[in-house]
Amino acid sequence: MIKFYNRKTEKYEIELVAGESYINWIYSSPLGMKILELFVKKKITSRICGYYCDRAISKIKIKKFVNEFKIDMARFEMPEKGFNNFNEFFYRKLKKEKINIESDKKILISPCDGKILAYENIDIKMLIQIKGITYSLAELIGHDSIDSNYTEGSCLIVRLPPSDYHRFHFVDHGTCSPTTKIKGFYYSVNPTSLNRIKKIFCANKREWSILDSENFGEILYVEVGATFVGSIIQTYNNKKVEKGDEKGYFKFGGSTVILFLKKDVCKIDKDIIEQTAKGMECSVSMGERIGSK
């Protein structure tokens, strides 16, 4: 059972988790952990899943998925003849009129829908995965000459459950560097697995780039793949981008977007910081305010 804080209602809720019993068994039993290490975390397993989700036969999963997770399809663009496969449904686009971006240049927005944790005054050598488990920024991006730029800055971790909108966006106007890709495994990023596997974000497949933003300085973007994520697709073109522009999307599976900001450029909203200190994620929507300059 995963609880999160709903910022709109100011109440705690229970998250509907895709494959919850399977995840709990895999990450909590000796046999499950053996299967995880031998098969589930491997690239070939996610490729097989991705191949199926790209085939027309996978369309049969869509209606059940929508009903089970109470997805409001009125928010999303719908192809005239429907989705060709499950993956097309999974990385569906929001309707333009359903996109609400905080336009004030002093406001920092969420890059995606999901559940967020936020940390200020970070120690780049001991980033928090979950209580008692840490990793370094250098390990995360495989680069030790950039990490010092974010000493005592802020770290935002947005987890995208499988039922969420799976496109991610730019949080400010600016120019983004080319993407660096790092090969890795495909562990789940569900809180259950975060409690069991050390340094998941450093072990999983991931990609990173730097947005030279107009209002918040250089922002380090890290996209992390997870179990059954077929691909991380970058759709930006390394040219000038606008606040709210699409940066990319994930194919099937839960995933994570991590942002790093430099010291003293942004104050994260109080409720997010307070809930993170309690070990609770907050639900956020793409374009929603999460901090200010």
Rank of each mutant, 00 (worst) to 15 (best):
K3M: 13
F4R: 14
K8L: 06
T9F: 01
K11T: 13
Y12H: 14
E13A: 09
G19A: 05
E20Y: 03
E20A: 02
S28C: 07
M33C: 02
I35D: 06
K43S: 08
I44M: 00
T45N: 05
S46D: 04
I48V: 10
C53V: 09
K63G: 05
N67V: 01
E68Q: 11
E68C: 04
E68R: 12
K70Q: 09
I71L: 04
D72C: 13
R75K: 15
R75A: 08
N84T: 01
F86C: 05
E88D: 15
F90V: 02
F90A: 00
L94F: 05
K96G: 10
K98V: 01
K98M: 10
I99G: 13
E102R: 10
D104N: 08
K105I: 11
I109W: 09
S110F: 06
P111K: 14
C112I: 02
N121T: 09
I128W: 09
Q129S: 06
I133E: 07
A138P: 11
G142L: 05
I146H: 13
S148T: 14
S148A: 04
N149A: 15
N149K: 15
E152L: 01
C155L: 09
L156I: 14
L160D: 04
F170R: 10
D172Q: 14
H173C: 03
T175Q: 03
S177V: 10
P178N: 15
P178K: 15
K183M: 04
T192S: 05
L194Y: 04
N195H: 08
K198N: 04
I200H: 01
F201T: 09
K205C: 08
W208T: 07
L211D: 00
D212Q: 10
L220W: 11
V222N: 03
E223C: 14
E223H: 13
T227M: 06
F228V: 08
F228K: 10
G230L: 05
S231Y: 11
I232E: 11
Q234L: 12
T235E: 14
Y236T: 07
N237K: 13
E242K: 03
E242W: 00
K243V: 08
G244N: 08
G248N: 00
K251Q: 10
K251W: 01
V257M: 11
L259F: 07
F260P: 00
L261C: 12
K263H: 15
D264A: 05
C266F: 13
D269R: 07
A277Q: 03
S283I: 00
S285Q: 06
G291Y: 04
K293E: 15
